[in-house]
């Protein structure tokens, strides 16, 4: 697969979140979505996937909580123009051993035995990318929900390295990566270390039942908090 320097696709995320810094995000960028429990991180990650799916971009979700089928259905519901054959998911909830299969509607699902099985997740990602590529998607968006669950199965050193290696992989695949983390579930130092594996961050918070976000590290100064 060619490296990003040859292609240089950019992703416009402003239909989902209106920030200047999200207008042209370089392909191969990895973004951390950080916020406390129940602040809408997963919802935002799915919206970002669906936004790409409706443009015909490849979609790859790694899920530790929801079933792969739920995630795929959710993305396709939000992106009525998206085709099932360029949507895929790696299911890490641990329902049996590693295996991949096309679904009836033509999406692809790979099962991994646990959120701590980093090799299995890697094989799943490789198979999904190949499936998407064979169905005509040469760029796309990736989301992993959530790093917090992975951190309960394996240590932060492994998770940090995992994120870094994935970021290199997406750089050459021309993908955009989005990873969620529950900021209320980890100590400051862990968050600080994990952050370092990313190109930028979207922080979200609940402010009097209004959802607010700000963008850090992608372009220019950190943005102000804004409702979304």
């Amino acid at each position: 697969m060619s490296r990003s320097s040859d292609t240089e696709a950019v992703y416009d995320l402003t239909d989902v979140l209106e920030f200047d810094a999200l207008e042209s995000v370089r392909s191969g960028s990895n973004i951390l979505v950080s916020g406390p429990a129940m602040s809408g991180k997963e919802d935002l990650a799915l919206s970002l996937l669906a936004d790409g799916a409706s443009d015909g971009q490849g979609t790859l979700a790694v899920t530790t909580g929801d079933s792969a089928m739920n995630v795929i259905d959710d993305v396709l519901e939000r992106a009525p123009d998206g085709g099932p054959s360029t949507v895929s998911a790696v299911d890490c909830r641990g329902d049996g051993s590693r295996r991949g299969e096309a679904t009836e509607s033509g999406s692809y699902v790979y099962h991994v035995s646990s959120p701590g099985d980093l090799t299995g997740i890697g094989i799943g990602i490789t198979e999904c990318l190949e499936y998407l590529h064979n169905n005509g998607a040469d760029s796309g968006r990736f989301a992993l929900t959530s790093l917090s669950t992975m951190l309960t199965y394996t240590d932060r050193k492994a998770v940090f390295k995992f994120c870094h290696v994935l970021s290199s992989r997406f750089d050459s695949a021309g993908y955009l990566g989005v990873f969620t983390i529950d900021s209320s579930a980890h100590d400051d130092q862990t968050l600080q270390v994990i952050k370092q594996a990313f190109d930028g961050m979207i922080e979200i918070r609940d402010n009097d039942s209004r959802r607010e976000a700000r963008v850090l590290g992608l372009a220019g100064q950190p943005s102000d908090w804004r409702e979304f």
């Binding site: 646990s114 980093l118 890697g122 490789t126 199965y153 995992f162 290696v165 050459s172």
Partner: peptide, 27 residues
Amino acid sequence: DLGDTLGGIDDDEDFIATLRGLSDVEE
């Protein structure tokens, strides 16, 4: 340096082999 080694990680075998070395989880 990491970006220059293995051309980042742009090969499936390099990718999986690198991940395999990361954790001690039983497979």
